[in-house]
């Protein structure tokens, strides 16, 4: 049971990824295929982000004290006046942050993902203009007929 609690994120994320992959493989409708691809992609994001989690850590936004402490010194009342968090919180122990690098990777991946999704949807609209359908098997049938006989004489 302890092993499950240590790895529950991987177990569930794999189930989600395989669900998305199944939708991509099994459905004939192209829009539903793209939704499946999107679900698959989001699940991969979940996998990466769950790897970067450090338990008991903060988001990777550096505390004001850590950031300006060295250059501004302790003389100014700037920090203690504006911050409601007592100084001892930061002085007691070094603050733990989650790993920022997977976050950066996934930020890029989300934006590139929406760009590819938009191109895919534009292609679906074009396919519908030419074939009159967005079901995979019907398009295959039409293609087979065209290859056999040509569109017109």
């Amino acid at each position: 049971m302890a092993a499950f609690f240590e790895h529950f994120n991987f177990v569930v994320v794999i189930v989600l990824m395989m669900t998305g992959l199944f939708v991509v493989f099994a459905t004939q409708n192209m829009i539903k295929k793209l939704v499946g691809l999107s679900v698959f992609q989001t699940s991969v994001f979940l996998l990466y982000i769950s790897l970067s989690k450090v338990s008991g850590a903060q988001p990777p936004i550096i505390a004001k004290k850590d950031l300006y402490g060295a250059s501004y010194g302790t003389g100014g009342g700037y920090d203690s006046a504006s911050s409601s968090v007592p100084d001892s919180t930061y002085q007691a122990a070094e603050v733990l942050y989650s790993n920022p690098l997977p976050h950066v990777l996934i930020l890029t991946a989300i934006v590139v993902g929406v760009a590819t999704l938009a191109i895919g949807l534009a292609l679906v609209v074009r396919v519908r203009e030419v074939y009159g359908t967005i079901e995979d098997d019907e398009i295959n049938k039409i293609d087979y007929n065209i290859n056999l006989e040509g569109v017109a004489k």
Binding site: T42, F45, S98, L107
Partner: peptide, 10 residues
Amino acid sequence: LDAVDVAFTE
């Protein structure tokens, strides 16, 4: 999961 920027973008 502490990924606030990713949550924003997502």
